[in-house]
Design a protein around this nucleic acid. Structure first.
Lengths: 327, 327
DNA sequence: CTGAAAGCGCTTACAG
DNA sequence: CTGAAAGCGCTTACAG
């Protein structure tokens, strides 16, 4: 290719890499040769010398089927991929719960497969934080990590979201309130519950343990239905439910309907996420917005800045209630 | 690392690559050194000499948000990823419709980023086939490609699936039958419609153009709702609908309900896919199974065989009706 | 069974 | 602004 353009390999390389100090004439000759020969630089050779993988990892420490089955994750991955569309880097999807494919995550992170990482669903017990610290890879979290964050994160204001749900249900005149919380080893689960309880307390609604109707799910549809049944057994007269994910909310609606309750007439239900499942639900779900696209683009911006050697501040994105029919 | 084990780099390399002709003693020494030093081979260097990218591309010529938003695609990607979990290759996701990120597909396919490709949703007008032919990359299609296939494919028997839907509705005593077909430039769209029509014809139900109630959607929820409205306008007395995807079927159910029809009492609805949306729908959707997991593992098997220099025969996987409540 | 040596295709100081 | 040369970290005939 260099020969075709009548220049040295060094100059050809400079043109390909847009080095400014190349004479226009030479630049044109090389460009022409590239076009003519359909030349594409060998990625491996370039990586070997530049020490860059030219790739960004999106790591999701969850089971693979879970990741692709959950509309929140799916939307998140889509958002990140789109935000990265203009970047020359390819995106490397690394999923798996510990034991279950989780080794691949470590392999990618430690093996020089990637130049940076966006960690999407972090559990307190996964070892991602440790690996990231050891490898010194530029990285950001989507979702505030548990414990003292040493890495920047972007998150929706889960606490405010939980409060919003409580306030809305109370404003609708509901008083026998229950919640299906998310996993308490994950900050979204814990924060949404804390916000919910704060909302109840502020309205003077008892949160004493005996009255505190909360069942914990794991954000999946299956867990939501089961939790709803337990709640119904505990308190048949409940009239309002906040589920910490739309998937759990949809299943809660179905469980309520199966138990002969009308939604929202008998029981009002509020979800969280505003995922595709919310609009598809009958009745359409009133839900707390999880601004996936904003989370994705913010995370990508932060990571890119970090990768350029800059700083990145953690950010909390505001949320709001999306009113539909279920509450 | 080689020094630590007291052997040459060549021998070390042989151990790492499991070359059988290494003395056990040397093998152990190297293994110990690897463990001790936490050695990981540099991927770029290895790729450079082996001329292998150690990566398999999953290409989906659809808009990115579409890919992640559609439960069929999501399940397909999850299935392929899982089927590839044991393989050392990483999976490279390449999405985008022409113009819209589609260049990345070509870049990955032509740029030596990958050793093989699984093409998931192929449109007649995309250039994937051409690129694949030129690059000579081992590749398989999920979904029979349009035209004379020169590459092996795995597909569900869409034609039989369409018939199944027709036969079921007819067996339920439905006679004013309509269908929401998929895009006719994609074989699943065309084949499901052909099977459906064959089923109608066989039962002696007129398929003459004036009676032939078919509206074309693009497999998305939005298109299904609109198609259903057109159908209702055309034939208010219809009593059975086959939608060529669950997403379209769910929206059709909602459109019917919004128009005051009870499902299945007034109008029976059959979907296609048995995706997560089918079970979440109220009433739960009767639908034609699209055996995603089987498609995924078969595609992966075929590709792996091809990559080892073997042959691969196209296969058509049987389908069946999943009976729930909507029909 | 093992080592010395060549070479994969690039980039990048270095010297000019 | 440009070229000759070194070198990135591996693998693999080749010779022994």
């Amino acid at each position: 290719m260099a020969a075709r353009a009548g220049v040295s390999r060094a100059t050809a390389s400079r043109v390909v890499n847009e080095d400014p100090r190349v004479r226009p004439r030479a630049r044109e000759a090389v460009a022409a040769a590239v076009a003519e020969l359909g030349y594409r630089p060998n990625r491996a050779a370039r990586s070997l010398v530049t020490r860059e993988a030219d790739s960004i990892a999106v790591v999701v420490p969850e089971a693979e089927d879970r990741v692709f089955g959950d509309p929140f994750f799916a939307a998140m991955l889509g958002g990140i991929t789109q935000a990265l569309a203009d970047s020359p880097a390819q995106v490397l999807l690394a999923m798996g719960r510990r034991g279950q494919g989780g080794e691949k995550i470590e392999k990618y992170l430690r093996g020089g497969y990637t130049d940076g990482a966006i960690v999407v669903s972090h559990h307190r017990d996964d070892r991602i934080g440790e690996v990231l610290r050891e490898t010194q890879l530029p990285a950001v979290y989507v979702g505030r990590p548990a414990g003292e964050p040493r890495l920047p994160f972007v998150d929706v204001d889960n606490h405010a979201g939980g409060r919003l749900a409580a306030e809305h249900l109370i404003a609708q005149g509901r008083r026998r309130l229950a919640t299906i919380a998310g996993p308490q080893d994950m900050t979204p689960g814990a924060d949404r519950l804390a916000g919910w309880r704060e909302g109840l307390a502020e309205a003077g609604i008892s949160t004493d343990p005996h009255e505190d109707l909360t069942e914990v799910g794991d954000f999946t549809a299956a867990s939501g239905g089961e939790a709803m049944q337990r709640l119904l057994a505990l308190s048949p007269e409940l009239d309002g439910v906040f589920a910490a994910s739309d998937l759990m909310a949809v299943s809660a609606v179905h469980a309520l309907q199966a138990a002969g309750r009308r939604v929202p007439e008998d029981v009002a239900v509020v979800g969280f996420d505003d995922s595709s499942a919310a609009a598809l639900c009958r009745p359409p779900l009133t839900t707390v917005l999880n601004p996936v696209a904003a989370l994705a683009t913010t995370a990508v911006d932060m990571l890119l800045r970090l990768m350029e050697g800059g700083e990145a501040q953690s950010v909390l994105i505001d949320t709001e209630l999306v009113r539909r029919t279920s509450a």
